[in-house]
């Protein structure tokens, strides 16, 4: 059996365990809801987690995935973790929770000569984590930018008005 097929056959089990491991990073009383409600708008956190998990696992397995598609799939998920009350490491580390699960389910089923395939898969995960890191940083910058922009907007008309008090400067003013 090809390595890719081994990854494929374990797909549902690995994704489910991984998603649950991510849900377990939230308080116990919240995880039941996260696990059970499927609607993307009623339970957006679970929806974005599942969207990210599926694409990431498929990309890690070695399926043909464009980097842009992977970025798109993890975008909401990383945006969420970037503003939830957790450390940056905790925000991103959930990607690495996939490794022990793959080592449990996928690695034992691969033949010895396929070890390189497995290592390649883990390396692909490392790449995805770096992509996530970029999105994470961009998200944090957006939060900071939002704060600045909001302060400016609140008083935008006041500044315009203050500059007009006493009449607009003449066009020639300041020119020699």
């Amino acid at each position: 059996m090809k390595s890719l097929d081994v990854f494929f056959n374990c797909r549902e089990q690995v994704i489910e365990e991984w998603v649950n491991a991510i849900f377990n990073t939230y308080p116990l009383q919240s995880t039941g809801f996260l696990r059970t409600v499927k609607d993307p708008f009623t339970n957006p956190v679970a929806d974005m987690t599942r969207e990210a998990a599926r694409t990431v696992y498929e990309a890690v397995s070695g399926w043909d995935k464009k980097p842009e598609d992977v970025k798109q799939a993890i975008d909401r998920f990383v945006h969420l973790r970037a503003v939830q009350a957790m450390l940056p490491s905790q925000g991103i580390m959930v990607f690495y929770l996939l490794k022990p699960i793959m080592r449990k389910h996928v690695l034992p089923k691969l033949k010895d000569q396929a070890l390189q395939d497995y290592l390649d898969a883990e390396s692909r995960l490392d790449t995805i984590v770096l992509m996530a890191f970029d999105i994470y940083m961009k998200s944090r910058e957006t939060v900071a930018e939002n704060r600045i922009r909001e302060i400016k907007n609140q008083h935008a008309q006041l500044v315009r008005w203050a500059q007009r008090v006493g009449g607009s400067p003449l066009e020639q003013e300041g020119k020699s």
Partner: peptide, 16 residues
């Protein structure tokens, strides 16, 4: 990594 993301040390050891 598991130790780093364990954000529920108080749960469920402590009640809400």
């Amino acid at each position: 990594p598991e130790e780093l993301v364990a954000s529920r040390p108080e749960f469920p050891a402590q009640s809400w």
